[in-house]
Design a protein around this nucleic acid. Structure first.
Length: 104
DNA sequence: AAAGTGACGCATT
DNA sequence: TAATGCGCCACTT
């Protein structure tokens, strides 16, 4: 069937991100390893494109647990606010405490 | 069709 | 310790 277009990293990323439970966060690196790819860039790009509101892109941070400067829905400050509302602990202004909230 | 771009990660300098 | 280069894959122009 023609519809079976190869599942791009984009879709794979969305699937993983949607699995993230509330109150937890994950990293680009974790997603990259999970997908078995080497392209961390596309992961970030996928979330930036974020056409799906069901995709909690705010639960994804870089390997340091640091929030990206550009958040699709208004900036890292908004992202931080959402995470705090879900119970995610912050180790610093832009850094998430992965020791307690890292989702693997 | 080809080149440029991008929310990154890791190795090396 | 920080800064730079390379890899990698899909999207945009």
């Amino acid at each position: 069937m023609k519809n079976n277009k190869t599942k791009n990293l984009f879709e794979q990323v969305y699937e993983v991100v949607r699995m993230i439970p509330k109150g937890k966060v994950t990293t680009y690196g974790a997603i990259v390893r999970r997908l078995g790819t080497k392209d961390a860039r596309k992961v970030g790009f996928a979330l930036h494109a974020n056409p799906d509101p069901d995709t909690p892109c705010h639960r994804v941070v870089n390997k340091d647990g640091k929030l990206a400067d550009s958040y699709a829905f208004g900036g890292w400050e908004k992202q931080k606010e959402k995470l705090l509302a879900e119970g995610v602990i912050f180790a610093s202004e832009k850094i998430v405490d992965l020791k307690k909230c890292f989702w693997e």
